[in-house]
């Protein structure tokens, strides 16, 4: 029997790695992928709790998360493409026009 805490720590680790990736990487698409890592980690946590408390709400919510992730990825990548068209780069350091 895997204790719940194991699953949760697993989820937390994945989440931290995702955050680390967001902060470190310069490529916009890779940052997106790290965001996906974070979302997946949350999914793991949700389903773990579901299993250990005999509920099905978490699965539904996880379903919704996937749905939203799909929508978000499509729109986000469309933005990246539009950005690339304008600036010929996806390097986040060079996208700094919105400053004061």
């Amino acid at each position: 029997m895997v204790p719940l805490s194991h699953y949760l720590i697993f989820s937390a680790t994945l989440f931290s790695i995702g955050v680390l990736g967001v902060l470190i990487r310069r490529n916009a698409i890779v940052v997106f992928m790290c965001v996906e890592i974070m979302l997946n980690a949350v999914n793991v946590s949700l389903i773990a709790f579901d299993r250990y408390m005999n509920q099905h709400d978490g699965q539904i919510f996880s379903f919704m998360v996937m749905c939203v992730a799909a929508a978000e990825v499509s729109v986000g990548l469309a933005i990246v493409i539009a950005l690339f068209r304008n600036k010929a780069t996806v390097n986040l350091d060079e996208i700094n026009l919105m400053k004061w």
Partner: peptide, 17 residues
């Protein structure tokens, strides 16, 4: 206060975290 608005996305993310 406006020096926060550096236009640098990664800084924003850092501050959020």
């Amino acid at each position: 206060a406006s020096s926060f608005q550096s236009g640098f996305v990664r800084n924003y993310a850092l501050i959020m975290v």
